[in-house]
C-alpha cells in the first residue's frame, strides 16, 4: 500500500471518533459498574467535563523533563498504536497508516506507553509512584508475554505480520474468526488483556487503597488531562488490535462499536466482582495460567 497524504486527515478523523467513543464508553462502563453497586453512577458526559476541567487548571508544577514527557510518551503510544492498525477493515478512510509489518509496531507501541509512564512517574519522586511503576512494569511484562505469544501464534497461523491481512483472513463468517480457529491463542490473549486493563484483579498498579493510584500520584492538571486522553485512546487502540487479531475485525463503525464494547465489557465483567491480586500473585498467575496457554497456542499452530 502506497502512502497517500489523504491518509493523514482520515486517520485524524479516526482518532477523533475513537476519542469520543472512548470517553463515552469509559463512562458507560463506569455506569454499568455503578449499577452493580446499586447506584446510577456518573453522567455519561462526565468524562468530557473532567477532561475540560483538568485542562483548565491554572497552575501546574513539574518535577523535571521526564515528568513532562511521561504522559506525552504514553499518549504517543496510544495514538501510535491506533494509527498504525486498521480500524475499519476494508475502509479506505479508516484503515489508517497500516502497513505490512504493523503488528510488530503495534506490539512495540503497547509497551512503549508503559515505559514512558515509568520514566515520568519515576521522575515525580513520589514513593507511591515508584512502587506503582515497579509493580506496573513487572506486571505488564508478564501480562504482555502471553499476548506476545498469542500474537506470535496468530502470525504463524496466518503467516503474515500485517494486521490487515489477518483481518482479511478472518472474513466470511463467524467461524473464521481466530476465536474459533485458534481458541487457545485467544484465551491467552484475553487473559493478558485482563492484566493490561488495570481492573481488578490486576489493578495493583493503581491500587488506591495501598499506594494511592500509583504512578500518576503526582500528575495533575494538563498532565493528568493528557494521561486521561490517553486512558481512553490506548485501551481502544489495544482492543482494536484484539478485535482485528481475534474477533474478525470490523467492517463498519456499528460493528466496531459493538465489538469494542463487548471486549471492554469482558474486563469489566471480571473486574467488578473480584478483589485485586498482589503483584507477585498476578505475576505468578500470568506465568502459571496464561503463559502455558500462549505456548500451547503456538504449539497447536
Amino acid at each position: 500500500m502506497s502512502f497517500e497524504w489523504i491518509m493523514i486527515p482520515y486517520s485524524l478523523l479516526t482518532l477523533f471518533i475513537v476519542i469520543n467513543y472512548g470517553l463515552l464508553l469509559t463512562a458507560l462502563m463506569q455506569k454499568i459498574g455503578a449499577r452493580v453497586g446499586r447506584r446510577h453512577g456518573i453522567p455519561i458526559w462526565q468524562n468530557y467535563i473532567d477532561l475540560l476541567k483538568n485542562y483548565s487548571i491554572r497552575s501546574s508544577i513539574t518535577h523535571g523533563v521526564m515528568f513532562y514527557l511521561g504522559p506525552v510518551f504514553r499518549l504517543t503510544g496510544g495514538v501510535g498504536l491506533l494509527l498504525f492498525v486498521p480500524t475499519i477493515f476494508g475502509s479506505e478512510m479508516f484503515s489508517n497508516l497500516s502497513f505490512a509489518g504493523d503488528l510488530i509496531l503495534a506490539l512495540y507501541f503497547i509497551f512503549f506507553g508503559s515505559l514512558g509512564m515509568a520514566l515520568g512517574a519515576g521522575e515525580s519522586g513520589h514513593p507511591h509512584s515508584a512502587i506503582g511503576v515497579s509493580r506496573g512494569l513487572s506486571q505488564v511484562t508478564t501480562s504482555e508475554l502471553p499476548f506476545a505469544l498469542a500474537v506470535f501464534a496468530v502470525a504463524l497461523q496466518y503467516q503474515t505480520l500485517s494486521v490487515n491481512d489477518i483481518v482479511a483472513a478472518q472474513q466470511g463468517g463467524v467461524m473464521n474468526w481466530t476465536l474459533f480457529t485458534n481458541p487457545l491463542a485467544v484465551a491467552a490473549a484475553m487473559l493478558s488483556f485482563l492484566g493490561s486493563m488495570m481492573r481488578p484483579p490486576f489493578d495493583v498498579v493503581l491500587a488506591p487503597q495501598e499506594i494511592p493510584i500509583g504512578p500518576p500520584t503526582e500528575y495533575h492538571s494538563s498532565y493528568l488531562a493528557l494521561m486521561q486522553t490517553n486512558r481512553v485512546i490506548f485501551p481502544i487502540a489495544k482492543m482494536v488490535v484484539y478485535m482485528n487479531l481475534f474477533f474478525g475485525g470490523a467492517a463498519s463503525w456499528p460493528v466496531f462499536f459493538l465489538k469494542i464494547f463487548l471486549i471492554y465489557f469482558f474486563s469489566l465483567f471480571i473486574g467488578v466482582v473480584f478483589p485485586r491480586f498482589r503483584v507477585e500473585q498476578s505475576v505468578r498467575w500470568f506465568l502459571i495460567w496464561a503463559m502455558p496457554l500462549g505456548i500451547a497456542a503456538i504449539l497447536v499452530v
Partner: peptide, 17 residues
C-alpha cells in the same frame, strides 16, 4: 450517589481540587 453530580474522590492532593 454523589457521582451523579460530578463529585468524585481522589486519593492524591495533586489531582483533587
Amino acid at each position: 450517589d454523589a457521582y451523579r453530580y460530578g463529585i468524585q474522590w481522589r486519593p492524591t492532593p495533586r489531582q483533587a481540587n
